[in-house]
Amino acid sequence: MVNEVAGGVPFLDVRKIMEFLPHRYPFLLIDRVLELVKGNYVTALKNVTINEPYFQGHFPGLPVMPGVLQLEALAQSAGMYIMNTFEGKFEGKVFVFTGMEKIKFRKPVVPGDQLILRCENFRQKLNLFKMSGNGTVDGKITVEGEMTAALIAREDL
């Protein structure tokens, strides 16, 4: 679980994130959990670099982080929150998207940006989790919306 440091601000680096999430290169899309307040919200960071493999084709000469990957980064942030907050046995289980609503893409994310991801309003019903979230660069919203994910057994995939 998350260790709290001075001021009650939890911090998780990428090594700790990999203990919780099954994602690996090139699909681990969060570099750090900046803050995780149980019962409230999570804030994470994605450093966007030109070395990301998707920039080869999206778009040549005009690199833009795909919106669906911004949503995936939000979902991974939410996964960190859920794994550190809700009671339950997560061993042998994974989270999968079951829905997205009210998704808006407001501003492109490009190499050199630091994408700050924030998820909040977490609700649980059985094995379903719903939350709202947004991504920002320099304080301006790049993506926002609501997401739903289900916790399912690995063998059911």
Results as ranks from 00 to 15, higher is better:
100 M>D: 05
138 D>L: 15
36 L>E: 02
114 Q>N: 15
21 L>Q: 10
87 E>L: 07
67 G>F: 06
63 P>L: 09
53 P>D: 02
103 I>K: 03
129 F>K: 02
135 G>W: 01
33 V>D: 09
48 V>Y: 02
126 L>S: 13
111 P>K: 15
92 G>T: 07
41 Y>S: 12
137 V>C: 03
40 N>S: 11
29 L>S: 09
72 E>S: 05
107 K>G: 03
43 T>R: 14
110 V>M: 10
130 K>E: 11
35 E>C: 05
127 N>D: 11
46 K>N: 09
91 E>G: 09
132 S>T: 10
133 G>T: 01
116 I>Q: 01
77 S>K: 09
62 L>I: 04
138 D>F: 11
71 L>P: 00
48 V>R: 10
59 F>L: 08
101 E>V: 00
95 F>W: 02
76 Q>T: 08
55 F>M: 03
45 L>Y: 10
106 R>S: 14
34 L>M: 07
76 Q>F: 05
99 G>W: 03
128 L>F: 11
56 Q>I: 01
65 M>W: 06
29 L>A: 03
100 M>S: 14
127 N>G: 02
113 D>P: 15
114 Q>H: 13
39 G>I: 02
55 F>G: 00
101 E>H: 10
106 R>E: 14
26 P>S: 09
70 Q>S: 13
75 A>N: 03
42 V>S: 07
116 I>S: 01
63 P>Q: 15
71 L>I: 15
137 V>K: 00
87 E>T: 05
128 L>E: 04
119 C>W: 02
79 G>V: 00
123 R>W: 07
24 R>A: 12
93 K>S: 12
45 L>A: 04
31 D>G: 08
34 L>C: 08
67 G>H: 05
110 V>K: 15
120 E>Y: 14
93 K>C: 08
96 V>D: 12
119 C>M: 09
89 K>E: 15
98 T>Q: 05
116 I>R: 01
65 M>P: 00
96 V>E: 05
138 D>E: 13
96 V>R: 09
121 N>I: 01
119 C>H: 02
80 M>Y: 13
83 M>F: 10
113 D>C: 05
95 F>M: 06
26 P>A: 06
38 K>H: 02
33 V>A: 05
127 N>R: 13
76 Q>H: 12
93 K>T: 13
32 R>T: 10
47 N>W: 00
73 A>Y: 11
86 F>V: 11
60 P>Y: 04
